[in-house]
């Protein structure tokens, strides 16, 4: 294994928009490749960790039990864990169900909504499907999070600044127009 710092990324209850924003650092991705080695990430499609990581980047909050397991694994495997984007930080769009009972959400989605075709009249319950949690949990309500980068998605420059700061141990001074909640 090379001596470069390893980083891992994952999308939990997110839309992959934050990952798109990682890619939005454009040609700086080459500089990033000089600094780090990618461990498990949708970018290389590794499904599990290859080793211990310096930085773990989490997009999306926890909406089901699998999200919780993955997030806990990230916490164990990574020295520094980063919540990337509004969904990881405050739940975002998936958290809009947080004040509606879960049963009501499922019945509306699979049974009652106009246009639903569901002759069996049941809510999907295949054992392969991860069980939904009662509500969406922001990542820092499940494990300790060391660093937050808000935004929907966070600007690529904000991601870059944070990564460079975390990897070199020299935090980049916050820039006003790179802290965004939208």
């Amino acid at each position: 294994m090379s001596s470069k710092a390893r980083i891992a990324t994952v999308s939990l209850a997110g839309c992959f928009g934050c990952h798109m924003s990682i890619l939005d650092i454009d040609q700086r991705i080459l500089q990033l490749a000089d600094l780090v080695e990618f461990d498990r990430s949708p970018i290389n499609d590794y499904k599990d960790f290859q080793g211990r990581c310096a930085v773990g980047i989490v997009e999306g909050g926890c909406c089901n039990e699998e999200n919780v397991h993955v997030l806990e694994r990230f916490r164990r495997q990574c020295d520094v864990l980063v919540s990337l984007g509004d969904c990881a930080i405050n739940g975002g769009i998936p958290a809009m169900r947080n004040n509606i009972p879960l049963r009501e959400c499922l019945e509306d989605a699979y049974l009652k909504s106009p246009g639903v075709y569901n002759p069996a009249g049941t809510v999907p319950n295949d054992p392969e499907l991860p069980l939904l949690l009662n509500r969406l949990y922001p990542c820092h309500e499940v494990v300790r999070i060391d660093h937050f980068i808000p935004g929907c998605p966070p600007p690529a420059d904000a991601i870059w600044d944070a990564l460079v700061g975390l990897l070199t141990g020299k935090p980049v001074a916050p820039v006003y127009n790179r802290l965004k909640y939208d």
């Binding site: 919540s83 930080i89 405050n90 739940g91 958290a95 947080n98 004040n99 509606i100 509500r135 922001p138 820092h140 309500e141 999070i145 660093h147 937050f148 980068i149 808000p150 916050p174 006003y176 802290l179 965004k180 909640y181």
Partner: peptide, 17 residues
Amino acid sequence: AYRFGIAAPRYRYLYPK
């Protein structure tokens, strides 16, 4: 919140109805 550089609040979200 931007002016204060708040990346995430310190308290739990209440998600009121």
